[in-house]
Amino acid sequence: MTADPPLVLDIDGTLTRPEGWGIDPRVFDPIRDWEAPVVIATGKAFPYPVALCHFVGIPELVVAENGGVVYTGDDVFFTADRAAAQAVLEDYRAAGYSTGWGPENTVNRWRETEIAVNLEQPIEPLREIAAAHGLEVVDTGYAYHVKDTDPNKGDGLETVAEHVGFDPEAAVAVGDSINDVSTFEVAGRSFAVANADETAKAAADEVLEEAHADGTLAALEQVRGSG
Score class of each variant (00 low, 15 high):
137 V>G: 01
143 A>P: 00
131 A>Q: 09
108 N>Y: 06
109 R>Q: 14
109 R>A: 15
133 H>S: 08
148 D>T: 01
133 H>C: 05
125 P>K: 12
112 E>W: 08
123 I>V: 15
123 I>M: 11
145 H>L: 10
145 H>C: 09
118 N>V: 07
147 K>M: 14
117 V>A: 08
124 E>P: 04
142 Y>P: 01
92 Y>Q: 02
138 V>M: 12
137 V>K: 08
121 Q>K: 09
110 W>S: 14
117 V>W: 07
146 V>W: 00
139 D>G: 01
136 E>I: 14
95 A>P: 05
139 D>H: 05
95 A>E: 14
104 E>F: 12
123 I>R: 14
124 E>Y: 12
111 R>C: 06
110 W>Y: 15
131 A>R: 12
137 V>R: 03
100 G>P: 08
129 I>R: 04
95 A>D: 13
113 T>C: 05
104 E>D: 15
138 V>N: 05
134 G>W: 02
97 Y>H: 15
134 G>K: 10
134 G>M: 10
134 G>C: 12
142 Y>Q: 05
141 G>Q: 05
95 A>K: 04
127 R>G: 02
137 V>C: 04
127 R>K: 15
136 E>P: 01
112 E>P: 00
127 R>F: 13
97 Y>A: 00
140 T>Q: 00
141 G>I: 04
117 V>D: 07
128 E>V: 09
133 H>E: 07
127 R>H: 11
138 V>Y: 03
104 E>N: 13
111 R>W: 11
147 K>Q: 14
147 K>E: 08
126 L>S: 03
127 R>Q: 15
115 I>Y: 05
100 G>S: 09
113 T>R: 08
148 D>N: 14
118 N>Y: 10
129 I>C: 10
133 H>W: 06
148 D>Q: 11
122 P>W: 10
111 R>H: 07
138 V>R: 06
117 V>L: 12
121 Q>F: 12
148 D>F: 01
146 V>H: 02
108 N>S: 07
95 A>V: 09
128 E>H: 09
102 G>W: 14
138 V>P: 04
97 Y>I: 01
132 A>T: 04
144 Y>I: 01
140 T>E: 00
126 L>N: 04
126 L>R: 05
132 A>I: 00
126 L>V: 04
93 R>N: 09
102 G>Y: 10
116 A>K: 00
123 I>Y: 01
109 R>V: 09
132 A>F: 03
148 D>C: 07
105 N>R: 08
133 H>Y: 11
96 G>N: 05
108 N>K: 03
148 D>S: 15
103 P>W: 01
100 G>I: 13
109 R>S: 13
93 R>D: 09
124 E>C: 05
126 L>I: 08
139 D>S: 01
99 T>W: 00
93 R>H: 11
144 Y>P: 02
99 T>S: 07
103 P>K: 08
96 G>F: 12
96 G>E: 10
141 G>S: 06
146 V>C: 03
105 N>E: 13
148 D>R: 09
126 L>C: 06
117 V>Y: 08
105 N>P: 08
139 D>C: 03
127 R>M: 13
136 E>T: 15
114 E>Q: 14
120 E>L: 14
144 Y>A: 03
